[in-house]
Nucleic acid binder design. Structure first.
Lengths: 189, 189
DNA sequence: CAGCGCATGTAAGATGTTACATGATTCA
DNA sequence: TGAATCATGTAACATCTTACATGCGCTG
């Protein structure tokens, strides 16, 4: 029995927070990509089957849109679903095994040339920097009430800012070291 | 075709760096757990089959220990293996989809009670703090030459320090906010 | 001699990704 | 009318974890 899947819980969570209006599988994917993308992701190949299973288990309720317009299946959470979600939220989250490819490649750095490492690090630094700015922008929008975030969601935003800023800081420092090594004489430290 | 597995590369990487002395599967697992544990992990159920496959592909060479003592199979990297490793190292690492269960639960925070969130966050904060100290200790040992780290490995150590310190910082800040919410009146911000 | 760490593996099953298939609607 | 987006799904496949099975050697 592998680890318990968290995909159903993400779906329940999203449906739980927005229980006013039901969402389609496509919507759910969009919500994930737009709001939790930086620390979570799901694929359609995962979402649709899980949606079906959750529906069978009565944790969510499915309703096909009727009348004209696009045909979609809209899902909303049931009381049982809420209960399930809450019991999952109460469990202490396991700090899932991290797998950071960049750090790994850096760790094996002596098996390549320094410019390669610089390239990798630079690219990720840029990515993190962009992420950091994105978070900051969202935070600003929240402050002027343009985004309806809960205080908890604001915290996750702050986490994003803090962590990516830290990464950028470390990357810049490391890039200096790497460039010094590249230009020659002695890999200081 | 799912993502290319990095397990073989981790093995090649470890064998590549320590090419003086060959390692057993058990050794490799130990090395992973002791040196890259904080940003990578592998299980035996993964290591042994991959070892067999790599051996068939001539990327590593297997030799059974002879004579008395424990029977082990020792692996070392081949020139082809080195080449493979280097070509993998040269590829830009994809920033693999992050999946952070703690942040996710926090994001859905309005679906639980605040004390639950405090418990989760506190636990992870402690873990991160311990990790941070562990890194710092290793760094110190490296400085007084008690650990033979390459400058690249030192960088990964610094990454560990920076990132976990940042996490602790954010966690402490967030804990204050959460506790203020718990004790009542207005969830500031 | 019992128990622990060493040591190698297999089997089952869940998790997850990618690619494909299909079709409707909207907009330029 | 053609492209992009909406929308739902399936199939194939790889990945990875957990649990189990097995046995040796060392140490108290």
């Amino acid at each position: 029995m592998a680890r318990e899947s968290r995909t159903p819980m993400v779906i329940l969570g999203i449906l739980g927070m927005l229980d006013e209006r039901p969402l389609s599988g496509y919507d759910i994917k969009r919500v994930i990509d737009h709001s939790v993308a930086h620390f979570w992701s799901e694929s359609f190949g995962q979402i649709y089957p899980v949606l079906k299973r959750l529906s069978q288990d009565k944790l969510i309720r499915a309703r096909a849109t009727e009348g004209a317009g696009r045909k979609r299946i809209l899902y909303s959470i049931t009381p049982q679903g809420e209960k399930q979600l809450q019991s999952w939220l109460a469990k202490t989250p396991e700090p899932g095994k991290p797998r950071d490819e960049l750090i790994l490649k850096l760790f094996f750095g002596s098996e390549t040339e320094v410019p390669v490492l610089i390239r990798h690090l630079q690219a990720q630094r840029e990515r993190a920097h962009a992420a950091s700015e994105q978070y900051a922008e969202w935070l600003k929008k929240v402050e002027i009430q343009k985004l309806p975030y809960t205080p908890f969601q604001v915290m996750t935003l702050r986490a994003g800012v803090t962590m990516s800023a830290a990464f950028v800081e470390w990357a810049d420092e490391s890039l200096v070291t790497l460039k010094r090594m590249k230009t020659g004489r002695r890999g200081a430290l």
